[in-house]
Design a protein around this nucleic acid. Structure first.
Length: 430
DNA sequence: TCTGGGGTCCTAGGACCC
DNA sequence: TCTGGGGTCCTAGGACCC
């Protein structure tokens, strides 16, 4: 690697909203929100909605009046669509640099120092990235360029907020004076790694802007906040501490949980929901080639209902032999559920987490297990389940324990089509 | 009526070892 | 009177991210 890294952070603008707009051009210049699972909260807002001061995470039911007044269009989250659009963006970005880290569904870091000369410099390269993603995928993105990831994040923030950058901010191209000036005007809470708690503690020390943190005493930060924030300060000063992670490490835990569309009181319905989550996590477990050593099951009542008795039950059940078989995992999860279930509560949410994951390739046998089922039938069954679901869509085959009516399923009343992943939902031009 | 889901990393403290 | 020193591992909880 070159000695002086240059990172580019490519971040889509209002990603979920922009995905909806690609296939419904009539949504341009209209206020649009995308809602969380169960159509609960606002998780993405168009610029028009941000102008109306609607905050991230606002419950949708509190916005009814405003939505009517301003004609806000709302959508259920359509992860099939967003995930596919995300992959398309990444495939375009890979052509610009093979050193790429997919950081989230709408953000990627690129190392560009050895390639930018091909485009006539870093800023020109940034503009080229923007133009190509817009033309080929239809999504607007902004690019932040700097000598550390934390600074690239900051640069991206500047690119989004200041039209003068035309969507690409290269921090290295600004004068030191200009940089400090902009740091001085940006609240420290915008810094990557500074959340609510740290922001409040920094404020007590008189550290309010990015520049204040940039100038803070390193030793004091280390002593009072720990190594993480110390690294952040180093990164703000241009000393790259966080490397690009091009290889996606295997997950250490895999979680599936969901609020119910309606309150549930009975054990059988909870068993269905838990079985559904087991299918979900087990599929992802097999996809990354791991085995689970324990299953954690939890059920919650609705914490917002102060008028109702509350109960949070959870249990971790170890597996005698690590497994990736949906039936085995469902067995232990359902056993756990029976232990934590209490009657007399209205449950709102259930979930399953797989933990103590290990690499299947280095499987550890058991000394005591009687006749380990090593004849491969379970393996072949799970492989068949996975390939059928890959070919015909998730849920084409599922555990009988999941039930057939799924009355507890989350609400998704405002779902758009899966334009890019289903033949029967392709956009039609008439 | 109605309030998301899925992750990671670090630290402190306790248990335990010789 | 008087009770060591140097570790590792694990877990729970808290912070952060999108």
């Amino acid at each position: 690697m070159a000695e002086n890294p240059v990172f580019a952070l490519v971040d889509a603008n209002n990603f979920y909203v922009s995905c909806e707009r690609v296939f419904q051009p009539c949504l341009q210049n209209v206020p649009v929100v995308v809602l969380s699972n169960n159509d609960g909260c606002v998780v993405a807002r168009s610029n028009e909605v941000k102008t109306l001061k609607v905050k991230m995470g606002t419950p949708w039911f509190r916005l009814q009046k405003l939505a009517q007044q301003h004609g806000i269009a709302a959508f259920s989250s359509n992860y099939a669509l967003y995930a596919d659009m995300s992959q398309r963006v990444v495939s375009v970005l890979r052509e610009f640099s093979p050193e790429l880290e997919v950081y989230s569904i709408d953000e990627s870091f690129l190392r560009i120092e050895s390639l930018s000369h091909l485009y006539g410099g870093t800023q020109a390269m940034g503009q080229m990235i923007r133009a190509r993603v817009l033309q080929w995928i239809g999504l607007p993105v902004c690019v932040g360029i700097a000598s550390s990831k934390t600074l690239a994040k900051f640069a991206n923030h500047l690119a989004k907020k200041n039209p003068c950058f035309a969507g690409v901010c290269d921090l290295n191209a600004l004068s030191a004076e200009d940089r400090e000036n902009r740091m001085g005007k940006t609240p420290v809470s915008e810094v990557w790694g500074v959340g609510r708690q740290i922001d409040a503690r920094l404020a007590k020390l008189g550290i309010n802007t990015v520049l204040d943190l940039y100038n803070a005493d390193l030793k004091m930060i280390r002593e009072q906040f720990g190594v993480v924030l110390e690294r952040t300060v180093e990164e703000l000063r241009g000393n790259s501490c966080l490397e690009l992670e091009a290889v996606v490490p295997a997950k250490q835990q895999i979680l599936s949980s969901r609020s119910f569309g309606m309150p549930i009181t009975s054990l059988p319905k909870l068993q269905e929901a838990v079985s559904y989550h087991v299918s979900n996590v087990a599929g992802r477990l097999r996809a990354q080639g791991s085995l689970a050593g324990a299953a954690h099951v939890f059920i919650h009542t609705n914490r917002f209902r102060e008028d109702q008795p509350q109960y949070n039950g959870s249990i971790t059940v170890p597996l005698p032999i690590p497994s990736d078989d949906s039936r085995v995992l469902a067995g232990v999860a359902l056993r756990g559920l029976k232990e934590i279930f209490r009657t007399g509560y209205e449950y709102k949410k259930a979930g399953v987490m797989l933990a103590l994951l290990s690499d299947k390739a280095n499987r550890q046998g058991s000394l005591f297990a009687e006749t380990q089922v090593q004849n491969g039938r379970g393996e072949r069954l799970m492989a068949a389940v996975d390939s059928i679901n890959a070919k015909f869509g998730r849920g084409s085959v599922y555990l009988a324990a999941e039930g057939t009516d799924k009355g507890w399923a989350a609400r998704a009343d405002k779902l758009s089509q899966r334009y890019t992943t289903r033949w029967d939902e392709l956009p039609v031009v008439s």
